[in-house]
Design a protein around this nucleic acid. Structure first.
Lengths: 156, 156
DNA sequence: ACCACATACTTCAACCTTCAACTACCGACC
DNA sequence: GGTCGGTAGTTGAAGGTTGAAGTATGTGGT
């Protein structure tokens, strides 16, 4: 059994604690200033980038790496809040598309500056550009490892 | 308003998705193989490193960066499972200490190899040592930023 | 000694996530 | 064209998390 050395141990714990604090804070800021959770915000982002501001539920789920069930619930809440609507998929009778409403687009326009400013202030602006790029490489590798490793999850 | 450039954007998203997948997987492995959640595991680790295998609730909460309420619940579940016991604090009548039981120590001994192997296989062994060190630096900076920024949270 | 205020932890209810059914539809094979 | 297995999405209940309010104890001023 190979354990982690001192250095690796420290990095791993820093990651655990830092991530917890960071996500907590970003979520809180969105909630307090825009009545939006971080998962909801991410869904708004994905939809806003999609063609026609609409996306199949499964694709949405994959793109944020949440379970389908979770996305169902999240989208339901967002629908109640008027941020999205559901639309049945013409091409596939089983399919459902989530569609951004004008109100949803507006919510995203409002929230984006807060969110980006938070990511900068609490993360990006605190560290070397080089180091931040390393973070990108590391988690791309992690994602690849987990998506390859998982049969039938190679959509991306 | 300064947005993130392409590269930063990619890194940030890789981080979000990679973290989600990684934590999910590590949690699942612990649950399936050892009936332990990741938060529970972390508490076992903290307690095992503490003098006398015991720690005040508040200190425990700070050390894993969870809310006090959350730690109360987690410890309650762990107490039911026989992994820890609560003990009132002699020095401070308000205080409560969580104490690792022999069963808790055993659970940790059993689970640790699984967990460490997972962290290696899914993260550490996939990336450059340099890059992993960068991750450590980045999240130490994040933690410092968030703990300094927060009045009365400088315990560590 | 008393009071006000702060700290330590718990409780409760609302909310979110997970997991295991469940419904509905597609596609292919006979 | 009926059946079988697979895919898309939802549902409902159980479990975990949050945040505000509650209980109990410590602390400092008078």
């Amino acid at each position: 059994m190979r354990w982690l050395d001192e250095e690796q141990q420290r990095s791993w714990r820093a990651f655990l604690v830092g991530t917890t604090l960071l996500m907590d804070r970003l979520d809180r800021e969105l909630r307090e200033q825009h009545r939006l959770s971080l998962p909801e915000y991410e869904i708004l982002v994905r939809l806003s980038e999609a063609k026609g501001h609409r996306m199949r539920m499964a694709m949405l789920a994959d793109s944020v790496s949440h379970s389908r069930s979770r996305v169902t619930h999240t989208v339901s809440r967002m629908e109640t809040a008027g941020l999205v609507v559901r639309d049945t998929c013409l091409a596939d009778g089983r399919g459902v598309e989530a569609v951004l409403t004008e109100q949803g687009r507006q919510a995203l326009r409002d929230a984006a500056p807060t969110h980006v400013a938070g990511v900068r202030r609490l993360l990006v602006d605190l560290v070397d550009d080089e180091d931040f790029q390393a973070v990108g490489r590391v988690f791309n590798a992690v994602t690849d490892g987990l998506i390859e490793g998982n049969p039938a999850m190679d959509i991306r």
